[in-house]
Amino acid sequence: MSLEIDGIGISFGGIKAVDDVSFTAKPGEVTSIIGPNGAGKTTLFNLVSGVYAASAGRVRIDGKDVTGLPAHALARRGMARTFQNLQVFPQMSALDNVMTGCHMQEKSNLLADLLGLGPARRETDRSRASAMAALERAGLAELAHRPASEMSYGQLKRLEIARALVTGCTILLLDEPAAGCNAVETREVDDLIHAIADEGKTVVLIEHDMRMVMRISSHIVVLDQGRKIAEGGPEDIRTDPHVIAAYLGAHGAAEAEAAAHA
């Protein structure tokens, strides 16, 4: 399903953290949001996924207006996300973390859950199977029974992806999925995101690793100080003078060079 963002904005104490941002993310594609620190990328995710209430603009899924719906209702319409500052369930095992992502598919009722009746067990078995499959996909199968609190940052990033995947989402918002990953892991995350998009899901990505962004994005939206300053394919963005001034220029030549050689 396509995700349309139309003139969305929010201000905190008079400062416009996100201001009149519009773009459309299409199914089967990776749309990346880039920009310098404090550009409002994560705030944009929080607006789109219902964590914050937007003070202006609309969000549409496949043309249907979903602006202002609470986060759980958006999840029910197929939107899943990961978090920049990790929101895992540290007290649970990796497996239980991902099984929680199956919440919307689980059909058992409260009574069955309390009495440990057949339906509750069957749903749990089914959730466990799909959670294991997702862990496998994220390369975390061996850690399934490890408490999340004992996993590394990069592993937790992938745990969140696995958890988002089992929700059966059609739109996936990924907030810096490769942060804290080494080169090999980054490559794995990269492949995973590719594969997710190839399944026809709409992927929206926030990422600082320019190499990765340039490699896997079909479409890039550049934010600076809460506003969209450019939008287009990787080639357009690489050569856009505004972007170079606002982002790459300020950040030094190294990243620009990395991007050029990607």
Binding site: V88, F89, P90, M92
Partner: peptide
């Protein structure tokens, strides 16, 4: 899940 992260629980529906 709510115990550990209210926000994440919401995001999972």
């Amino acid at each position: 899940a709510i115990h550990d992260s209210d926000v994440a629980a919401r995001s999972l529906g």
